[in-house]
């Protein structure tokens, strides 16, 4: 049996906000340690991996590992009806009914909404994600997630975001990280300097650079990755010219959401 409870729907609403834009369905793995979610976009270019440890839940009972594919668009619709302070209960039996039940209860007026989701096939996930060694990454940038989202929005409004092939070039040297894109009639470059600790900003931009790196990524995917800001104030971008880039948002002390994508390479 699987029975979980969150006394605030906010966390799950934010999770769906962070993934339902780019991913249409996901594999949910419930085990004794918590929830591991994985999804890949239809073109198999991006992968998202989410971990929510059991401690993230106010009540967590999972006496047997249970894996299920769920449609994220349907879930996002259900969660849009939920208020942030609704109590969510997630239940699944092993009665081979291949459904999971989400219950939202409003603490004010006790109104209850019940949604049953049928399991669906998941296109190719879960995959085994190796922990790539730190040494493989030429640069890592940690910055406020709101700042990253703002940059992606600016570049999308300037770049020809209608054009499926608009790329953003992320370049890192020891002082700053640059975001560059080419529009129809010009180019746009946004330079973020590494903040000195003396500035004591509430959210620093920090750069760890082994060697300079400059990589091109699809701007549409960058935009979708920046939605992880619903779950964390900071994003860490790990860049390597021969490994998938990782955009990681730590979720308090209970988990993380990581988006993976390969840089575009010259033919």
């Amino acid at each position: 049996i699987l029975e979980l409870r969150l006394v605030q729907a906010t966390l799950f609403k934010n999770v769906l906000e962070a993934i339902s834009d780019l991913f249409s369905k996901a594999n949910f793995d419930f085990s004794g340690t918590g929830l591991e979610l994985q999804a890949m976009d239809t073109s198999h270019v991006a992968l998202v991996a989410l971990l929510l440890r059991a401690e993230a839940f106010n009540h967590y009972l999972c006496d047997r590992d249970l894996s299920m594919g769920l449609n994220l668009a349907d879930m996002a619709k259900a969660f849009r009806c939920a208020n942030n302070d609704d109590i969510i209960t997630i239940k699944a039996e092993e009665d081979w009914s291949d459904t999971v039940t989400f219950t939202f209860e409003s603490p004010e007026d006790g109104e209850i909404s019940i949604f049953d989701f049928d399991f669906v096939g998941t296109n190719g996930v879960p995959l085994e994600i190796p922990e790539f060694p730190e040494s493989e990454y030429q640069a890592k940038v940690r910055m406020p997630s709101a700042k990253f989202m703002r940059i992606c929005k600016k570049l999308s409004s300037f770049g020809d975001s209608g054009d499926r092939d608009t790329v953003v070039i992320i370049s890192v040297d020891k002082e700053c990280v640059n975001f560059f894109t080419r529009g129809k009639t010009g180019t746009s470059t946004i330079v973020c300097r590494q903040t000195q600790t003396v500035d004591k900003p509430k959210e620093p931009t920090l750069i760890e650079m082994k060697e300079q790196v400059s990589l091109a990524f699809d701007l549409r995917y960058m935009n979708s990755f920046s939605k992880g800001s619903t779950l964390s104030d900071q994003v860490t971008i790990s860049l390597s010219s021969n490994l998938p880039a990782v955009f990681e948002y730590k979720i308090a002390e209970t988990g993380y959401i990581r988006y993976y994508m390969l840089p575009r390479i010259e033919e």
């Binding site: 270019v45 996930v125 995959l127 085994e128 091109a216 699809d218 993976y260 390969l262 390479i265 033919e267």
Partner: peptide, 14 residues
């Protein structure tokens, strides 16, 4: 033109 490789080339089936 630059090409976009699939993520599955780096992550194997569970």
């Amino acid at each position: 033109p630059c090409i976009q490789k699939k993520i599955m080339e780096y992550f194997s089936k569970d």
